[in-house]
């Protein structure tokens, strides 16, 4: 094996300079490496690695007005231990708690989890219902653009990022309304260290007996994580009766398009996605 070329910029500006020197080559952006290291023998030997994990600007959790800014190279454990996240974004804590192990969470970054664009990425469904924005840096234009997270994904393991673009920040709006209901549940193959077969994230607001609004995102059941907007629309303004819940289950079943793979089957993923919605709405009623 020839020595792989490798760079580790310390600033975004350095990143830009390095990139401009090698823009014609195939580039591998490396952060925590918990996924890339597993398949390291399959990586192209001609690829140039740019390790962005040393860029200080990409780390940390900051509250700015009514938003939380998370640097893309912040590790999952840093998020889990952050009081800001614990207090303001409990749904993200719920999701991260189900992810891998402490050993992995100490290395894996939120930017990596998002950038991998896996439909089973467990931070993605909560971020989607939270209407998170992603800040992207382009070394070609030397500009930062901000997009809604739901527009980042173009397919399984595929994003709308242009060549050289890196995710630098995850911006989560904080909801001012009191008493928001939040739900995250993933169904894997066992209780720990498991990849999601299907998951559901939800936030909702109720008034009296009706659902004022609800935002839903299903994981691992579509080529990309997306909002279940027809289901949301249907539930909105309704009282959650058994009939409504059953109807909602049928609607969400039509919104997803799961596949059969080694972890589960298409039919089972549809079934448990419906169950997750029922579980979520039942929890909402109990509240």
């Amino acid at each position: 094996m020839n020595s792989m070329q490798y760079y580790s910029p310390n600033t975004i500006n350095e990143y830009r300079k390095i990139y401009s020197g090698i823009a014609d080559k195939s580039i591998l952006i490396f952060s925590g490496g918990t996924d890339l290291m597993v398949g390291r023998h399959e990586l192209s030997q001609d690829a140039v690695i740019i390790d962005i994990s040393g860029i200080a600007e990409l780390k940390g959790i900051v509250k700015k007005g009514d938003k939380i800014h998370i640097g893309s190279c912040t590790t999952l454990n840093e998020l889990l231990c952050s009081h800001k996240i614990q207090n303001d974004i409990p749904i993200l804590i719920k999701a991260i708690k189900t992810m891998a192990s402490e050993q992995i969470r100490n290395r894996a970054t939120i930017g990596g989890n998002i950038g991998n664009a896996s439909p089973a990425g467990d931070t993605i469904t909560p971020l989607v219902v939270l209407e998170t924005k992603i800040e992207i840096f382009s070394p070609e234009s030397n500009e930062v653009r901000t997009i809604p997270i739901k527009t980042l994904f173009s397919g399984p393991s595929a994003t709308t990022l242009e060549k050289g673009e890196i995710i630098i920040k995850i911006i989560i709006p904080l909801r001012k309304d009191e008493d928001i209901f939040c739900y995250f549940r993933k169904i894997g193959q066992r209780n720990a260290m498991t990849i999601t077969k299907a998951s559901l994230s939800a936030i909702a607001k109720c008034s009296d007996t009706k659902i004022e609004w609800i935002k839903l995102a299903s994981g691992s059941v579509s080529p990309v994580v997306k909002r279940m907007s027809k289901t949301e629309e249907f539930i909105k303004g309704k009282k959650l009766t058994p009939v409504v819940i059953n109807e909602a289950k049928e609607i969400i079943a039509k919104e997803i398009s799961p596949i059969t793979d080694i972890r589960s089957t298409k039919a089972f993923r549809v079934l448990i996605t419906k169950n997750l919605l029922k579980d979520c709405l039942s929890a909402l009623i109990k509240r």
């Binding site: 193959q189 066992r190 209780n191 720990a192 260290m193 498991t194 990849i195 080694i262």
Partner: peptide, 27 residues
């Protein structure tokens, strides 16, 4: 309960601990 080896056209599809599921301490 957990351990399913997936065979397709005679070939074992499982590649490691990520898809051959054995009980963890939480199971």
């Amino acid at each position: 309960v957990y351990e399913a080896l997936c065979i397709k056209d005679g070939e074992v599809q499982n590649r490691g601990f990520r898809d051959y599921i054995i009980p963890t301490i939480q199971d």
